[in-house]
Amino acid sequence: MKPLLEIRNLRLRFHTLRGDLDALFGVNLKIYPGEVLALVGESGSGKTITALSILRLLDPTAEITDGEIIFEGKDLLKLSNDEIIDVRGKEISIIFQEPRSSLNPVMKVGDQLIESLMAHTKISRDEAYEIALKLLSRVGLPDPKRIMNSYPHELSGGMAQRVMIAMALILRPKLLIADEPTTALDVTIQAQILALIKELVREYGISVLFITHNLAVAAEIADRIAVMYAGNVVEVGYVDDIFEEPKHPYTIGLLRSIPKPGYEGELYSMKGEIPSLLKMPPGCHFHPRCPYTIEICKSKAPPMIKIDGNHEVACWLFMEGEV
């Protein structure tokens, strides 16, 4: 199958007062039609800037220095400003962690939904109203007429995230980027939102890039998982393979540090800390913390190596033949 979106060798650098800081070191990712790909990693691993690069929503201090982001045959990084605006919302849309701060606080929810419809399509206001109303009820909001007339502050966090999902889907995009969409929500509400996203994926056939730091959430929602560490994707595979046969020492360490139900012994903890962008180690970024470091890890960054058809890992331990 052809991927819907492919990120190739994406490199990104921040220009700061303390000098230039590299933040992405050649990220490769493919998202296939109709799948949920979870991008997991700890804070500072580069998940969010990877996602923001797709829609070119980066801060002006960030510069993409290399790479391509191919979506339906075109390189999103080469589009003009007008062209990328056309992609946003219509082809690819995004929802964020804090739904209430992503909505306009002084505009009624209904008007915000109608505005995005009318900006991108040629329909009347009445038609737009009907579509918005239907969608609000589809995302599970009780009394959608009242919601249309509400301001964002009148909604709970869970309701606001449902509104955001409706807004993100109203133009029927092919790809939804969800950046920690349930992190700010209570666990019962999180369960509802995850169930809703799964239903919508099935119903509309959209693909989802789901960014999360929570491995359990990734296990619930994803078809495939990509693990990021310090600006690189270090492992990609089907969700079952990642959880049952993780290959990269970082993935293994991460999975072992989560407390499992019923476990009472000491928790596994990786040595060292996530490196700062100011002091990125050479070679494989994980080598100072890795229990299996070999000589080459210290000088050369490992390429992505295929374990089997769909499981890939960036680690020298899996290189066959002479290294």
């Binding site: 509400i189 999180q190 509802q192 359990a216 296990a219 619930e220 969700v239 959880f243 999975l255």
Partner: peptide, 25 residues
């Protein structure tokens, strides 16, 4: 509450019976 908690195991996540919570606090 307990059935809402995501489990870090895709096999269990797919097979267990869940009670999707109703309403909000």
């Amino acid at each position: 509450l307990l059935s809402s908690v995501p489990v870090p195991d895709p096999k269990i996540a797919k097979s267990r019976k869940r009670m999707i919570p109703m309403g909000e606090i």
